[in-house]
């Protein structure tokens, strides 16, 4: 079972709640995904600093799953910290998916701001889930800042490109065998999620791939199956790839070759 910040979570799929054709379809997709954690954004929905997104947030709370508010859309430490504080008020949780964006085009994280904000929020009692890259040094700094989970990207947010740097993700997994690692962002199809799980990642987080699919609920179900398949495969200890054929049925000594 997935363990983060002392909590046991039954599902290894985390789902975002943005970009669906309607809230009703979002609810169907969350159910079909069997996700136990959903992310929700606040930055733009809050309007002029108030709680103008209350109706939508009430729908999220009614899902009956854990809410992981995020700081999507924040480009500075100050914005991210303020948004996290508001999220704690709105959802009554110390959990925060921390995004500090550097580049508007690729939505790459500002890793320096990320580490700084993670330290500030941890000292304020937050449980920080940082959206980061697969860089080992950044990972180390985030852990030192107090993060107990890391969420490296597979590819840029919403890009549907899958795992851009399998080597880097494998390396991160190997360097931090005991830290919960979640591939966050860039997944497009269920095979991407299965691949991440086969690498030994503890979970995946996605949004666009489900929300923008023609049938979001069906796609959510497909991702749930893929995550389960990938995790089971990882635990079953896959064989190594090899260059030479290794027949599963010996041919030597067969009486007839048809």
């Amino acid at each position: 079972m997935l363990r983060v910040y002392g909590e046991e979570i039954a599902s290894r799929l985390l789902l975002g709640t943005a970009l669906y054709p309607s809230p009703a379809i979002m609810v169907e997709a969350v159910r079909a995904s069997r996700a136990q954690i959903v992310t929700v954004s606040l930055r733009r929905e809050a309007g002029g600093g108030g709680g103008a997104g209350q109706d939508f947030w009430a729908l999220i709370r009614e899902l009956g799953v854990r809410v992981l508010p995020n700081t999507a859309g924040c480009h500075s430490v100050k914005e991210a910290v303020t948004t996290a504080q508001m999220a704690r008020e709105v959802f009554g949780t110390p959990w925060i998916k921390l995004e500090v964006i550097n580049d508007a085009e690729t939505l790459q994280p500002d890793v320096f701001g990320l580490v700084e904000a993670a330290g500030i929020l941890t000292r304020e009692g937050f449980k920080v889930f940082p959206y980061c890259t697969e860089d080992l040094g950044v990972a180390d700094r985030l852990l030192t800042a107090g993060c107990e989970v890391l969420m490296p990207w597979g590819a840029p947010i919403g890009s549907a490109r899958g795992l851009n740097n399998v080597y880097g993700l494998r390396s991160l997994r190997a360097h931090f065998p005991d830290v919960p690692l979640v591939v966050d962002a860039g997944l497009g199809v269920p095979s991407h999620a299965a691949a991440a799980m086969e690498l030994g990642y503890d979970a995946v987080l996605l949004n666009t791939a489900v929300a923008k699919a023609g049938d979001p609920a069906a796609m959510a179900g497909a991702f749930a199956l893929a995550v389960e398949a990938g995790r089971t495969a990882f635990e079953a200890d896959p064989i190594e790839a090899r260059d030479m054929a290794a027949p599963s049925t010996p041919v030597l000594g067969k009486a007839f070759l048809e």
Partner: peptide, 13 residues
């Protein structure tokens, strides 16, 4: 299209 019932002003973004 923003999930919000704020009708005061347009945002800069």
């Amino acid at each position: 299209m923003i999930e919000s019932d704020d009708r005061t002003r347009i945002s800069a973004r």
